[in-house]
């Protein structure tokens, strides 16, 4: 019974993580402007990775490896948003015309 619960939990986490990665993939390919593309890309790197790692933790059980996996997740949760922020700032500084046009379009 416990085994089944664990398996189902693992499968659910895996499916959810893959779903978020898939949305990231689709979003990056479908959107047309950098800032819009950053949004799904950020989701894939944070939420998708967290769910997949949790699935791995549930599948393998809690031991020393769990700590390592959590370290990786923490690292990604610190770095990935910073990356997204930097790319956004770079776009804003270098492509002012396009940026303002897009902003106007989204406001209206």
């Amino acid at each position: 019974m416990l085994e089944w619960a664990r398996f189902l939990l693992c499968a659910a986490l895996l499916a959810a993580g893959l779903f978020f990665l898939l949305t990231a993939l689709l979003g990056v390919n479908r959107f047309r402007f950098v800032i819009n593309r950053l949004h799904p890309a950020g989701i894939g790197d944070t939420l998708g990775l967290l769910l997949l790692s949790l699935a791995a933790v549930v599948y393998a059980g809690f031991d020393q490896v769990t700590v390592k996996i959590l370290c990786i997740v923490t690292f990604f949760w610190i770095t990935s948003p910073v990356c997204t922020h930097l790319i956004g700032r770079l776009v804003r500084e270098t492509d002012k015309k396009q940026f303002e046009a897009e902003a106007k379009e989204w406001k209206s």
């Binding site: 610190i78 770095t79 910073v82 700032r89």
Partner: peptide
């Protein structure tokens, strides 16, 4: 100077930790 964001506070905080 033109193309790289300089003195980005968020990046500096993250770098100080990492």
């Amino acid at each position: 100077r033109n193309f790289e964001p300089k003195n980005d506070l968020i990046l500096q905080c993250a770098a100080r930790i990492l």
